[in-house]
Amino acid sequence: MNKSTDIDIVVRYLEDPENEQLKAELNDWIEQDNANLDIFLDMKAMWQGDPLPAASSTYDVHGQWEQLDQQLVAPAAKPTPVVQMKRRYWWAAAAVLLLAAGTWTFFGPGGYQTFATNQQRDSIRLSDGSMLYLNSNTRVRYAREFGKNSRTIKIDKGEAFFDVTKQDNVPFIVNTPEVAIQVLGTSFNVKSSNHDVKVFVESGKVSATYKATGKKVILTPGMEASLNSQQHDIDTKTYSKRNNILAWKTRTLIFDETPLSEVAASLADFYHVQVKISNPQLADKKLLATFPDLSLDEVLDIMRKTLRINITKTNDLVEIY
């Protein structure tokens, strides 16, 4: 479903919240992706002229679901026709923006911005001079007044790399639903999935705090912290200079006598496929190769010839045997 269709579903419901069919369509759309609830709440707030929550605030998702469920059952007040028309045109313009650019943004009356990518990658230069690089399928948001008195960004989902300009008096803060990250000036990567957040530091020093328990870890260059919301714990790992954590940004995969089991994991993450090693004896086989922005088929062909192994690819499944 494209973004213009998404917006149309929400707008039609906001124009006629008592319509049972529109309620059902909205509910089905929200259930497709947890992030759609945030999008709906943002659009509803803008529709009503309410200020949006600050980027650093904690969102009560469970509570919002309960409120929404009541809304979709109980009658709701209907906006006046004049307001409907004005906002209809405003959101129609927003829909055009979504179609015109792979990275889209919402501007709310509360001075709040949301950026998101679909299948492509993108980058944003922030007002303080810091650079934000977004991987595909990533959604972030921050206040329009970012950089003046605070520098806070929230990652709703996906993966982003931050190259932060140093400001001793204004810390740079990155929030995910489970983890708070604070720096002054550094470069680091944050990957947020359903139940796991990974923070990797390329330069400088980063403080990562697990919100549920208050546990905190200090990361220095080459270190990665994995914070699992189901385990309520923090695991750390130190990498050598040769790793592929930032391959999505550099578009280059580097394997320096890397075991095939690790190669498979890197390929799966980079190309968004499932990689299975059917022959366990191949798991420790080493690969020495550099792949500069090659297609998956090209990489697999080189691996076949270099390691003299069999590889088949069917749709999104790669099998090594």
Rank of each mutant, 00 (worst) to 15 (best):
I254Y: 04
R251W: 00
K216I: 06
M223Q: 15
K305V: 13
P221Y: 00
L267D: 03
S266Y: 08
V217Q: 03
I254Q: 09
G222W: 00
I254D: 04
D301A: 12
I234N: 04
Y271M: 07
N228H: 06
A283S: 14
N244R: 01
T312G: 10
R308K: 15
A264D: 12
K305C: 01
S261P: 07
Q231N: 13
Y271E: 09
P221M: 01
P221F: 01
L307H: 10
D235P: 00
A264C: 13
Q230A: 10
L282S: 08
N315S: 15
D256S: 12
D301K: 15
N244Y: 03
D233K: 10
K237Q: 14
K286Y: 08
R242K: 07
S278I: 04
M223C: 07
T236K: 10
R242W: 13
L253E: 04
A265I: 09
Q231T: 14
M223R: 13
N315C: 05
S295A: 12
L282V: 10
Q230T: 13
S266W: 11
V217F: 01
Y239Q: 06
S266L: 05
S226Y: 04
T250V: 06
A264V: 09
N243F: 08
A247P: 03
R242S: 10
V217N: 00
K241A: 12
K249H: 11
E257Y: 09
K285M: 05
A289I: 04
A268T: 07
E224W: 03
L287M: 07
W248H: 10
A283T: 13
L246H: 04
L219K: 00
G222D: 03
Y271S: 11
H232K: 14
A225H: 00
R304G: 04
I309V: 15
I277T: 07
T290D: 12
I311M: 11
N243G: 11
D284L: 11
I254P: 02
K285Y: 14
H272T: 14
R242A: 12
